[in-house]
């Protein structure tokens, strides 16, 4: 467990569950409203910290997702709303010809803008912005799609200096106090849907969870400051969300070393035994603050290093279970 030496930061990718119900909503929207209009559609995805020990939690795209967060009241502790973009093409060729690298960078640019403009402090889930590209083959009741979580690429490697389970990195008093603070944070309907936050631990081991926008007030008073986030993962790697979080810390807080906290739950209760505390260092990236700068980005689900985007296999979902015709056939 004790991290031996500094090493490049590695994070766990986020798995997506795009429910049949979401594609059914898209199908209806396309038939009733969109027609052949293939402009990007703002949608909502749902994120949650890890809930069970054995498996990472999934990012959910569900019937409610078809609306943007601004028009969507759905959200709770198990469904933190995250803004996303859907690009649905009208045919297979259109889908295959999408310039995946380019559209990913365009989304990453939005994230970068939200960081530097201060939007992230008001709405931290902007750091988890996602992208869905699809071809809904409604004639054949099939959808082909790919999902990405755009992540900004630093000029040089982010170095992981240490990584420990929270229970071994903190004192018993700190663990008790922090657990209490998390229970409060998760209880309130206002804070529970906020996946990025600050953890302040005073010298007398009192822990508080605070909003990200308080980072200035929390700095440099001799107290322990951890940048916390809901971690979807279940293993010894921090979750994907940490990468853009570090970009935020670098750009906004102008620091080159951060202590982070990967918050995980066990059956809906804070799990400080398997939550992680780590320290990472990084160099400030060049040029990110220039207004027309378009950052490098990674983040397509299933993306493997060195392969061309075009070789990326689309995911395929069969919608025949919602086809009324096929249900009639079954009955005969």
């Amino acid at each position: 467990m004790e991290a031996a030496a500094a090493r490049p930061l590695q994070v766990a990718a986020i798995g997506v569950c795009a429910e049949t119900g979401f594609w059914d909503s898209l199908r209806r929207l396309k038939l009733d409203v969109l027609g052949t209009d293939d402009s990007p559609i703002p949608i909502t995805g749902y994120y949650t910290p890890r809930q069970y020990e054995k498996i990472a939690s999934l990012f959910r795209i569900c019937p409610e997702s078809i609306l943007p967060p601004s028009a969507n009241s759905f959200g709770d502790r198990n469904n933190c709303p995250v803004p996303g973009t859907l690009l649905n093409t009208n045919n297979m060729r259109g889908f295959q010809n999408l310039d995946r690298a380019l559209i990913l960078r365009a989304e990453a640019k939005k994230i970068l803008h939200d960081i530097s403009s201060g939007n992230v402090e008001e709405n931290p889930s902007l750091l988890l912005r996602f992208l869905v590209i699809s071809f809904a083959d409604l004639k054949n009741w099939k959808v082909y799609y790919n999902v990405a979580f755009p992540s900004l690429v630093f000029d040089s490697k982010i170095t992981l200096l240490s990584l420990k389970f929270a229970s071994s990195a903190l004192s018993q008093e700190e663990v008790t106090s922090l657990s209490k603070a998390f229970i409060e944070w998760r209880k309130s309907s206002e804070t529970t849907v906020v996946p990025f936050f600050l953890i302040n631990i005073t010298q007398d081991s009192t822990a508080t969870v605070r909003h990200l926008k308080d980072w200035k007030a929390c700095q440099g008073n001799g107290q322990k400051l951890l940048f916390g986030f809901y971690d979807h993962g279940n293993r010894g790697f921090p979750g994907w969300a940490l990468r853009n979080y570090i970009a935020f810390v670098s750009l906004r807080c102008k620091i080159e070393k951060v202590q982070f906290f990967c918050y995980r739950e066990k059956r809906g209760h804070p799990d400080l035994q398997q939550s992680l505390i780590g320290e990472a260092s990084f160099l400030a990236p060049h040029g990110w603050d220039a207004p027309d700068y378009v950052p490098e980005a990674i983040g397509w689900e299933g993306e493997t290093i060195g392969k061309e985007y075009k070789e990326m296999k689309p995911k395929e979902i069969d919608l025949s279970s919602i086809n009324p015709a096929s249900q009639d056939e079954e009955k005969q």
Partner: peptide, 20 residues
């Protein structure tokens, strides 16, 4: 956790790693 064999794959890769 790290004894999964995936870890070594990552050494040749850039600063990120999609943990399979």
């Amino acid at each position: 956790y790290e004894d999964t064999g995936n870890y070594s794959v990552a050494t040749a890769q850039p600063s990120y790693f999609v943990a399979e």
